[in-house]
């Protein structure tokens, strides 16, 4: 009896899952049929594989990609985006599994933000074998496989921009809080920042780079400790807006005049600048990355035009222009 109940429950769960997954499973099955040309025209299916969808940054990417696909669709071609992502940014293995299953199902092109830059190389090779073009967004894959193009922020340049801004606007001690130790994006943002500060005699870098692992609460704790350790601290640079907001809360609680610079240019970060929390942030443009990625793949698939590497612009967001950044670009 018990076994039957268990079996029934499992079955019910499976049905529930397929019901939830309706959206994603629908799309690939749609494209299988139009692989043979029919009267309504061809469907071009592009798989988008962001690091995760639990971060608004990547959700923006998905929205912009879908919008770009809709605007590119015409009577002859329908462009469709299928998207899935691991629950968190370190889901290297899950992402590769998703990538592989998209290749199995058959897609026309892939946009990926690799969770693991080295681990993804072999799967990109498989895509190469199947002649499926792959474009890396935001984060580039390591050497070894043929990536059609890289479209994203130059994290080093973004960090450099923040460094220069600091050198111009801050006099005194500066500390750095980073995302995850060993993550290339964040390392580049740190290195760019440190190089941007170079030669500025008015700024002194203090303390070792502390990791907040993208957690707002951890960033807040680190900032509190930094504020205690360095009574003359004038500025904290955090390599993500989520962390920067935590640091800003810590600064506000002490009432000291310490500037907090973030990285991302997220709507929440811009709002924090308007509310007097953070001071500045380096804006990235996930929307532009996704748009350009979809366009480049479309050109490649339809016209055979080779895609080119592209750095999307970074800009400094401060109280003056924060209002323009309340939505992702």
């Amino acid at each position: 009896m018990k076994r039957w109940i268990a079996l029934l429950l499992t079955l019910a769960m499976c049905f529930a899952l397929t019901a939830c997954g309706g959206k994603t499973t629908e799309a690939p099955s749609n494209d299988e049929q139009p692989a043979q040309t029919d009267a309504a025209g061809k469907t071009i299916t592009i798989a988008l594989l962001p690091k995760t969808l639990s971060n608004p940054y990547f959700v923006a990417m998905q929205k912009f990609a879908e919008a770009a696909a809709a605007s590119l669709s015409n009577d002859e071609y329908t462009v469709e985006i299928v998207c899935s992502a691991p629950p968190s940014e370190d889901g290297v293995n899950e992402q590769i599994t998703m990538f592989e299953s998209y290749l199995e199902k058959g897609v026309d092109g892939v946009l990926i933000v690799p969770c693991g830059t080295a681990e993804v190389v072999d799967t990109i090779k498989k895509a190469n074998e199947k002649n499926v073009p792959v474009i890396c967004l935001d984060t580039n894959a390591d050497e070894g496989a043929e990536v059609a193009a890289f479209i994203g922020t130059n994290n080093y340049d973004g960090g450099f921009l923040a460094g220069q801004w600091t050198a111009e606007n801050i006099d005194g001690q500066v500390a750095i809080i980073t995302g995850t130790l060993g993550n290339q994006c964040h390392t580049d943002r740190n290195n760019g920042y440190i190089d941007g500060l170079e030669g500025a005699s008015n700024v002194e870098l203090v303390g070792d780079i502390q990791p907040c692992n993208g957690d707002q609460g951890t960033a807040m704790g680190i900032a509190e400790n930094l504020l205690t350790a360095y009574p003359d601290l004038k500025c904290i640079y955090v390599t993500s807006d989520t962390g920067a907001m935590g640091a800003a809360t810590a600064v506000q609680a002490t009432g000291r005049d310490v500037k907090v610079i973030g990285f991302d240019g997220s709507p929440a970060g811009a709002q924090s600048i308007i509310d007097g929390g953070m001071t500045a942030t380096v804006a990235q443009t996930p929307g532009v990355m996704a748009e350009e990625g979809v366009k480049a793949l479309y050109e490649m698939i339809i016209n055979g035009t080779a895609a080119e590497d592209m750095y999307t612009p970074c800009s400094m967001v401060t109280a003056e222009n924060a209002n323009d950044y309340l939505d992702w670009h």
Binding site: S54, N55, S88, D215, Q216, G217, M245, A268
Partner: peptide
């Protein structure tokens, strides 16, 4: 206490 301290609730909090 956590969200009151940070002034924001994140879905990724507390990992």
């Amino acid at each position: 206490v956590y969200v009151a301290r940070l002034g924001a609730a994140q879905a990724t909090a507390g990992q």
